[in-house]
Lab assay of single mutants.
Amino acid sequence: GLPEGWEMRFTVDGIPYFVDHNRRTTTYIDPRTG
């Protein structure tokens, strides 16, 4: 799974992105792969 505090969501286009609730940021880069 994802690191603690992270969540995976999808855009309206079906593109996955990642929400970091710890820092309240979003990124398209998987936190597991950097």
Rank of each mutant, 00 (worst) to 15 (best):
W6S: 01
G34V: 13
R9A: 06
Y17E: 05
T33V: 12
M8S: 01
V12P: 13
P3V: 04
R9P: 00
E7S: 12
Y17I: 09
T11I: 00
W6A: 01
G14D: 06
I15A: 07
P31L: 01
P16R: 12
H21A: 08
I15T: 12
H21S: 09
V19A: 04
E7K: 06
Y28N: 08
G34D: 14
G1M: 14
R24P: 06
V12T: 13
E7I: 09
V19F: 14
P31G: 01
D13F: 12
R24F: 11
R9H: 08
T11G: 10
G14M: 07
P31W: 00
D20N: 10
T33N: 12
V19H: 06
E4Y: 12
E4G: 09
Y28S: 08
G5M: 06
F10P: 00
P16L: 09
T27L: 04
T27R: 03
N22F: 12
F10R: 08
G34Y: 13
Y28G: 05
R24H: 15
P16S: 05
T26M: 15
H21T: 11
G34R: 08
P31Y: 03
M8A: 06
V12S: 13
R32H: 03
I29A: 08
T27K: 03
G14H: 08
E4L: 13
G5T: 05
Y28W: 15
Y28H: 10
F10W: 14
T33P: 11
E7N: 05
V12G: 09
L2A: 03
I15M: 09
T33S: 11
G14E: 04
I29N: 09
V19W: 10
P3T: 03
G34T: 13
W6V: 05
R23H: 15
E7Y: 09
I29S: 08
I29H: 10
R9S: 04
W6G: 01
Y17A: 02
R23F: 10
T27V: 07
D13A: 14
F18L: 01
T33W: 12
P3G: 05
P16K: 09
T11L: 03
P16Q: 09
D20E: 06
P31E: 02
R9Y: 08
T33Q: 11
I29F: 10
T26N: 08
R9E: 02
T11E: 04
D20M: 05
F10D: 00
N22L: 14
L2H: 03
P3M: 04
D20K: 06
D20L: 07
T11K: 02
D13N: 14
Y28T: 09
M8W: 03
D30I: 01
Y28A: 07
D30S: 00
I15W: 11
T25P: 02
Y17T: 03
M8I: 10
D30A: 02
P3N: 03
P16N: 03
P3Y: 04
E7D: 05
V19S: 03
R24A: 14
D13K: 13
D30Q: 00
Y17S: 01
L2Q: 02
T26R: 11
I15D: 07
T25I: 15
M8L: 10
Y17L: 08
Y17Q: 04
Y17V: 08
D20A: 05
R23K: 11
G34L: 15
E7A: 08
R24Q: 15
P3D: 06
H21Q: 09
R24D: 14
P31C: 15
G1F: 11
V12A: 14
R23V: 07
R32Q: 02
D13Y: 12
N22K: 11
P16F: 05
G14Y: 03
Y17F: 11
F18A: 01
P3A: 04
G1R: 13
D20H: 10
G1W: 11
D13W: 11
G5N: 08
R23M: 11
I29W: 11
T26G: 06
T25S: 09
G14S: 06
G5S: 07
V12E: 13
T26I: 15
T27M: 05
D30T: 01
E4V: 13
G5I: 05
D30Y: 02
H21F: 10
F18R: 00
T11A: 06
E7F: 08
P16E: 05
R32T: 04
P31H: 03
Y17K: 02
G5Y: 05
G1S: 14
D13P: 02
T33L: 14
T27E: 03
R32K: 03
F10K: 07
D20G: 01
R32F: 05
D30W: 02
R32W: 07
Y17G: 00
D13S: 12
Y17M: 06
G5W: 06
N22M: 12
R23N: 15
D20W: 08
H21V: 10
T27I: 08
E4M: 11
R32G: 03
T33M: 12
R24Y: 10
P31V: 02
V12Y: 13
L2S: 03
E7G: 06
L2I: 06
M8Q: 08
H21E: 07
T11F: 02
G14K: 07
L2R: 02
W6M: 03
H21Y: 11
G1T: 12
F18Q: 00
T25A: 09
M8Y: 03
R23I: 06
G14T: 00
F18I: 02
T26V: 15
F10S: 04
P3H: 03
W6I: 05
D30V: 00
T27P: 03
Y28L: 12
D30N: 00
V19D: 01
P16G: 05
F10H: 10
G5P: 04
D20F: 09
V12H: 14
D30G: 01
F10N: 03
T26Q: 13
T33F: 10
T25R: 15
T33R: 07
L2D: 02
I29K: 10
Y28E: 07
R24I: 07
I29D: 10
F18V: 01
H21D: 07
Y28D: 07
I15Y: 09
D13E: 13
R24K: 15
F18G: 00
L2W: 07
F10L: 09
P16I: 10
P31A: 01
D30F: 01
T27S: 10
H21W: 13
R24T: 09
R24G: 15
M8F: 06
V12W: 14
F18T: 00
P31M: 02
G5L: 06
R24N: 15
T26Y: 15
Y28K: 06
V19Q: 04
G1H: 11
T25V: 15
Y17N: 01
T33D: 12
L2F: 08
T27A: 04
T33E: 12
D13Q: 13
D30H: 05
T25N: 09
R24S: 12
T26W: 15
T25Q: 11
T27H: 08
D13H: 13
I15Q: 09
V19P: 01
V12I: 14
Y28M: 12
G5K: 06
Y28F: 15
T25F: 15
T27Q: 08
V19T: 06
R9N: 04
V19I: 14
I29Y: 09
R9Q: 05
